[in-house]
Amino acid sequence: MMNKENLIEYIYSIADNSLILGQQLSELCGHGPNLETDIACTNMALDLLGQTRSYYQYVAQLVGANKTEDDIAYLRTERQYKNVLLVEQPSTHFGYVIGRQFLFDVFHLLLLEKLQFSKDETLAAIAKKGIKEVSYHKRFSSDWIKRLGDGTKVSHDKIQEAINHLWPYTEELFDVMPADKEAIECQIGVDAATLKESYVAAVSEIITEATLTLPETKWYQRGGKKGIHTEHMGYLLSDLQYMQRTYPNMKW
């Protein structure tokens, strides 16, 4: 059995990514480049928020004291959210939306493929259900990486610009935090560091096919896993938490 605080921390490190990315995608609903893409992005948001709910319901159960999924989702301080910086990057244009999605989807699928064998039955079940959804997300974002990369000169430059911006945020995906260590030892969690090789290979394959390149950099951005977020995160949380903060302790 794993220390409960650490287990909760470990779940945050996975679930908060789904929450924040789901929140970002949901903001785009109604503003997509065409109806079909709009519907597809909303589908991904729905999947991610659905996963978030399953994780948070589990956390609420672990915390006890009549906590609900909404307490977990809405009533933490910014420093208590443990999503990676990658998913909180702004939707500057559709290239950023797709780049962010793609760079996260590849990781997300690798993670869930391992997490489905977790000794924690609840996490294993959530992961198993998520695999189907995330495989679709990965296909969608990979297809768009290729369309934008090998589309027009304009789209090529735009998606390359987005990849250049986002790539330095990917390294954090593989950081192993103190809570993760115990989760790994108990065979509840996944050792993210072991996913890196497959990740780089899978990303490179699509990027190359899309006639794009991964930027060469030695400098990476990290902090989300410690709860040290970018400036954009505060605005994101202001929207997310607005109702719960303004009208505390009410049922909706």
Binding site: N34, R147, L148, S155
Partner: peptide, 8 residues
């Protein structure tokens, strides 16, 4: 804003 995406 979506034009370049549809063109691509």
């Amino acid at each position: 804003e979506g034009e370049w995406v549809r063109d691509a």
